[in-house]
Design a binder for these strands. Sequence first.
RNA 1: CGGGGAGUGGCGCAGUCUGGUAGCGCACCCGGCUGGGGGCCGGGCGGUCGCAGGUUCGAAUCCUGUCUCCCCGACCA
Length: 429
Amino acid sequence: MPRLSEYMLPTEKQAPADAEAISHKLMVRAGLIRQMGAGMWTWLPAGWRVHQNVVAIVREEMDAIGGQEMLMPVLQPADPWRKTGRIEIDELFKLADRKGSELVLAMTHEEAVTFHAAQTIRSYRDLPQILYHFQVKERDEPRPRAGVLRTREFVMKDAYSFDRDQGGMEESYQLHVGAYDRMMERTGLRWYRVEGDVGMMGGLGAHEYMAPCPAGEDEVVLGDDGYAANVEVATNSPDVEKVGEGYFKNGEPLKIEPAIEVGNIFKLGTRYSVPLGASYLDEQGEERPVWMASYGVGPARIVAAAVEQYADEHGISWPRALAPFQVHLVGLGKPGTPERDAAEAIYKTLSDGGIDTLYDDRDLGPGEKFAEAELLGCPLRLTVGRRTLESGEIEVQVRRGRVQAPGIPLQDEPQELVRAVDELWRSLP
RNA sequence: CGGGGAGUGGCGCAGUCUGGUAGCGCACCCGGCUGGGGGCCGGGCGGUCGCAGGUUCGAAUCCUGUCUCCCCGACCA
């Protein structure tokens, strides 16, 4: 529950000159992230809170379908990658240790998780399993871009399901569709689940979770009937006609929106289990390959997409599920004044009451404090100044739309203030 | 990888063409005023001009090499 006077929140009035995307500019300006190199970003304290809010949502939904959290290494021996053939991928960072042993930096964790599955899964009784972790991925991207939207290192939640056969895999896959739908809904983003391009994975099926936003690198094709697909998929669909630049389905025009891919789920089949020897004995004592699927989601992209979707000319406007703090409390007036004492008391009441509060206790002018609050974008702004003492009401601004909410009486019992803030909080998008 | 652009104090920039020993706004520090929308006045701190080599009496500026970053495209298990 930090005081801004003691908190590392390096805001900037001007965006970095080379920034183009809204999320890139605003996340840097608001003091959430800082760049270290191309595609290499540091999450500063407030930014990391947002990131971890996404992580918490994803974790809850994964646990709810029986996912088991673990942690696998980023630095890995090259051998399993050679077995799956993925050692050839250009995006894979390869290196050697001092002894000359070949290593890679994992770009995703199919090899690692399947390596362990091969060691530990022996019987049909050991299946099914859902394993997942949040771990850094390393990718030698040809072109990192747009702040945190496309980086060379990023945290991904990747999950893997292991089943006895294709039918089991389909069931696990459907469980994940449900979990992913729920986590996307909870983030507060506008999102679509679209038929994915299965690409080189070979036709078993895939879905992508797309968040429409101006900086999106992909395009989704959308129909009024709920149809949603990746452009590549729409182009190849028998139901969809392409006329010039436009797409039509049953004669109705479809609209095209740029979007960012925030998650994807793939039916892998035995693509990894066979080369890495992940098999089990069935009831008849017959050896069979494990059927797998993988499920990825990028918290950083969800954060960036939220910035893109809801920002206005004053800054970020977080959906409440992601906000770094619930309340941005602006205390006006010099330390020692009655209005500042009142702000201090309210800060204590909110913090003690379990409301995530960022308290601007700095000795700055009101304009600067308001501008920074709106840049950072916490859903609620409470202002305490002379006017508060005169009117007897704490001023409340809802960040989304910058609308004034009814004031909260200053003289109420502390628990009343907490209750009022909490109630207002629950009503927010 | 193809095309384009840029490296000068924490951020944004000027100075480079025409070589003469670095400047502006913001931020920061000190003092004062102000106190409900990035306020005002005064005084300060801070930069081997990405790096290396060369030309020159003298290089941010000219030459050569090199590194880095951004944008567009290609790519994106």
